[in-house]
């Protein structure tokens, strides 16, 4: 229901952050008025309809990937034919 994209903060003017979407040179201005704390340059925001809803949490992202790796590791290897 709610399309939101991650974007990297390049510049901040007041409550407006200019953010880079994906790796290329596509930028969007997003309001940061809904964030509990002002973001920093280099933060990744999740943006919906021109408003930042959250700052992405790097530690949590790494944690998720780590636990995914663990889930997979304790499983039977795939693609082995009897």
């Amino acid at each position: 229901m709610c399309l939101a994209v991650p974007a990297e903060v390049l510049d901040i003017q007041g409550e407006m952050a200019t953010c880079r979407v994906d790796r290329g040179q596509t930028t969007i201005k997003a309001s940061t008025m809904l964030l509990p704390e002002a973001p920093k340059l280099g933060d990744f925001l999740i943006i919906h309809a021109g408003f930042a809803l959250r700052v992405l949490d790097r530690e949590q992202a790494e944690e998720s990937l780590k636990s995914l790796g663990e889930i997979v590791e304790c499983s039977v290897p795939s693609g082995v034919e009897g």
């Binding site: 994209v5 974007a7 979407v21 994906d22 290329g24 040179q25 596509t26 969007i28």
Partner: peptide
């Protein structure tokens, strides 16, 4: 697809 186009597309759906 260029990164710029991919980015713009993800933004606008």
């Amino acid at each position: 697809v260029k990164d710029e186009v991919r980015g713009g597309c993800s933004l606008l759906g």
